Amino acid sequence: MPGCYCVYILRCRDGSLYTGYTNDLSRRLRAHREGKASKYTRSRLPVELVYYEQGESKSWALKREYEIKQLSRSAKEALLKS
């Protein structure tokens, strides 16, 4: 999905959730799965995309990523079910 900004949540092998943003979700997911995107997910492979939202700008993506990261674990799980 090049050209749009996405905020995404991955579920890692250990059950933890990783939140990030990108302007190319497929490229970023490939990098995560290859262990090249972040130290956090590299040690918790495999990862699975469980949620994403698309937005209109990088500013939106950064704000939404921050909002999601501030949520409790139970609130994140509720977001995944919505």
Score class of each variant (00 low, 15 high):
L25T: 02
L25A: 03
L25I: 15
S26P: 02
S26Q: 09
R28W: 01
R30A: 13
A31D: 14
A31P: 01
H32S: 08
E34C: 08
G35Y: 10
G35H: 04
K36G: 09
A37S: 15
A37P: 00
S38A: 15
K39F: 11
K39I: 06
K39E: 13
T41Q: 12
R44I: 07
L45H: 12
P46F: 08
P46R: 12
P46C: 11
V47P: 01
V47Y: 06
L49T: 06
L49K: 04
Y51R: 03
Y52K: 05
Y52R: 09
Y52C: 10
E53K: 04
Q54R: 14
G55E: 04
G55N: 07
E56R: 15
E56L: 08
S57K: 01
S57I: 04
K58W: 12
S59Q: 11
S59C: 04
A61I: 03
L62N: 02
K63D: 06
K63Q: 09
E65W: 01
E65Q: 10
E65L: 05
E65H: 01
Y66G: 02
E67K: 01
E67D: 13
I68R: 00
K69P: 00
K69V: 00
K69L: 13
Q70N: 04
Q70S: 13
L71N: 00
L71C: 00
S72V: 03
S72D: 03
R73D: 10
R73F: 08
S74A: 12
K76F: 00
K76A: 01
E77Q: 13
E77G: 03
E77V: 06
